[in-house]
Nucleic acid binder design. Structure first.
Length: 477
RNA sequence: GGGGUAGUAGGGUAGCCUGGUCCAUCCUAGAGCGUUUGGGACGCUUUGACGGCGGUUCGAAUCCGCCCUACCCCA
């Protein structure tokens, strides 16, 4: 069928859809010849730039940006016992300089606590230095043994935004945890990605943390994707790295810390949550091309149409809209498909008919069609685009809610995890969690979920029947 | 962690068992020319590959070994 030409696999076949979309929409090229490392196409990188631009802007309100080295000396990396246990199997080591073996092996950071905290020990002197809130956006390396996936499970995480804060007291650090969660919620709200916030179980918390709050979303195949974490580090690291301050009374005190991060999984979620069978769909704020102008140049009025189109382009660009003119010698239909694949938020068509009417045809990526008078182009475009994000937010929110279901019996649990996320009652015992995971093939995501009222959840642990609390179970990426 | 399956031009494939005119083929690929253009245009010309390294052989996409990479399924 002609309509099938160049089509993506349907989104219902999510894995195939995702792999195909990545290169067809020019986001990532997966052909780099090293496992787990992928290349950003310029178009994908432009999406990243807009997403991380927002993240940076939000972080800058209460943090300062910094940059620490990629390499961490072995003796620093090996200081914090729990931390080592959590990461040592995934660390790449630089052992040679040229042909010489290094005296001190250097770790490629899998995360930067052990790079940053020795410096924090030097920088923090007094309670007046606190709170200290820094972040950096860097690449990190993890020797993943599981199946790698572009943007999702990587050996080089190219875009890790990690924040590291220092506070006087445990409670101050806890407040920072809440502040960080609020930032991340706002961030994902802007991306129109609905999230689930919950507290990870003990065995799944960050190595060296008091507790971990995770932010998950649900992918189109019903599996959850962790797209942000916030860790309360207590004084574990400050004791290890001697991060101390002199309090108001002149006594030396160990500081309390938090750290939290977001990676390019945010981009994976953005693409996956909103995309459709025709390709990328992006909130206009993050689309590299917000408006594409497509001339419909028929016969002898070709020059006239092209001139009108380039005037439109100029008007849009002057108004600060990321606009492009597609004047390639292709049929208009081919261009529509091309830009839909790449997630252009709005298409403006102009042909002889439109010129005569003093109007242009506008079609949003989600299919809202209208006509805009040429002399009100900018306000018309702004209006039409303004509604897109809200529509996407509603649609994605409904999708997420439909994937979360309470379960009071084992059958309901298995069914719910098959479709998405189950909310069950769990007593808190590891044995019962193991059972929950075993019958579902999923994992216990967390407790204390901030979901509003789910309702319909018994208080008795689904496994053992003793007193339990609401717990999320799902299959995770 | 365990098991499959596969890698041939930008993409998709045939050929492989049974080494040799294999100058293979198709396209939504690239370059060029012309006709075209309101939802994936057409004609002609043309470009371009056997995942990597090593081995066997007069001769390897094809046989052998090692490695790399990808996808799927199961703990």
């Amino acid at each position: 069928m002609a309509e099938e030409e160049g089509a993506l696999p349907p989104k219902s076949d999510f894995s195939a859809w995702y792999n195909d979309l990545l290169w067809r929409a020019e986001i990532m090229d997966v052909r780099y010849p090293v496992k787990g490392l992928y290349v950003w196409y310029p178009h994908g990188f432009a999406i990243r730039r807009h997403v991380y631009g927002l993240l940076r802007e939000m972080m800058d309100r209460s943090h300062q940006e910094t940059l620490f080295p990629l390499l961490i000396p072995e003796h620093e990396f090996m200081k914090e016992a729990e931390h080592i246990k959590g990461f040592e199997d995934e660390v790449y080591w630089v052992t040679h300089g040229g042909k010489d073996q290094l005296d001190v092996p250097l770790a490629l950071r899998p995360t930067s606590e052990t790079a940053i905290y020795p410096m924090y020990a030097l920088w923090v002197r007094s309670h007046a230095d606190l709170p200290l809130r820094l972040y950096q956006i860097v690449n990190t390396f993890r020797y993943e043994t599981k199946h790698t996936r572009p943007l999702i499970r990587l050996r080089e995480i190219t875009s890790f935004k990690e924040a590291h804060t220092v506070h006087s007291t445990w409670n101050d650090a806890q407040e920072q945890v809440e502040a960080a969660i609020a930032i991340y919620q706002e961030f994902y709200d802007r991306l129109c990605i609905p999230v689930i916030v919950s507290k990870r179980p003990e065995w799944d918390k960050f190595p060296g943390a008091d507790y971990t709050i995770a932010i998950d979303t649900v992918m189109p195949d019903g599996k959850t994707l962790q797209i942000g974490t916030v860790h309360h580090l207590g004084d574990h690291f400050s004791r290890t790295f001697s991060i101390m301050y002199e309090d108001a009374l002149g006594a030396q005190q160990y500081a309390h810390q938090t750290c939290y991060g977001i990676s390019e999984r945010s981009i994976a979620a953005l693409i996956s949550v909103h995309g459709d069978d025709r390709g990328l769909v992006l909130p206009p704020e993050f689309s590299p091309v917000q408006v594409v102008v497509i001339p419909i140049p028929i016969g002898k009025r070709k020059d006239e149409v092209l001139l009108a189109a380039s005037r439109l382009l100029e008007t849009l660009q002057k108004a600060g809209i990321r606009a492009r003119l597609d004047d390639r010698d292709l049929r208009p239909g081919a261009k529509y498909y091309y830009w839909e694949m790449r997630g252009a938020a709005l298409r403006i068509e102009i042909g002889p008919r439109d010129i005569d009417a003093g109007m242009v045809v506008s079609v949003t990526r989600t299919g809202q069609r209208s006509q805009i008078p040429v002399d009100q182009l900018v306000s018309g475009v702004t209006d039409v685009l303004g509604g897109e994000a809200a529509r996407m937010k509603v649609r994605a929110g409904e999708m997420l809610r439909s994937r979360i279901r309470p379960a009071g019996t084992t059958d309901e649990l298995v069914a719910a995890v098959g479709e998405g996320v189950a909310v069950v009652s769990w007593c808190g015992e590891k044995n019962c969690a193991d059972s929950l995971e075993e019958v579902t093939g999923g994992s216990v995501l967390g407790t204390e979920a901030r979901l509003g009222d789910i309702g319909g959840i018994p208080t008795a642990c689904l496994i053992c029947g003793s007193n339990g609390k609401a717990t999320l179970v799902g299959r995770a990426y």
